[in-house]
Amino acid sequence: MTTNDNRRPRGALEAAVMTALWAAQAPMSATEVQHELGGDLAYNTVQTILTRLHEKNAVQRRLDGRRHTYWPVVDAATAAAAQMKAALGERSDRHAVLQQFAASLDEADAALLRQVLAGTERRRR
């Protein structure tokens, strides 16, 4: 279970936990975070990372019964979004200089991608 723990640096683990919390849109327990990350991290590792993130004020937590649940602090992310919109929104040509994950599509391309997606979904089952 812990094979990946050593391979991934600490920052990458924090990032993985943060992305899981952001994706969830609801408070999560350490067990839920561990499950969401595909179970390739040990429970103790996840718990340690969550505690550290809480100490850094990156996540908030509350006691639900006998366990803590965690959710991300939104203030910084809201501010980041405003700055990002300001930096990118006004000038579309700024996008061209960035290495960003995926760009826009026309209708024919979108149809092709849906086909590919349907193909990979079928193979997965």
Binding site: H95, S104, L105, D106, A110, L112, L117
Partner: peptide, 29 residues
């Protein structure tokens, strides 16, 4: 990996902010 790229591109193509992106979609395909 293929699914991640495809799904992100499909979602991005629906949003107004990305309509102005200067990169052609054929690249993603």
């Amino acid at each position: 990996a293929a699914r991640a790229v495809a799904r992100a591109a499909l979602a991005a193509s629906g949003s107004p902010a990305s309509a102005a992106l200067g990169i052609d979609g054929g690249v993603v395909v």
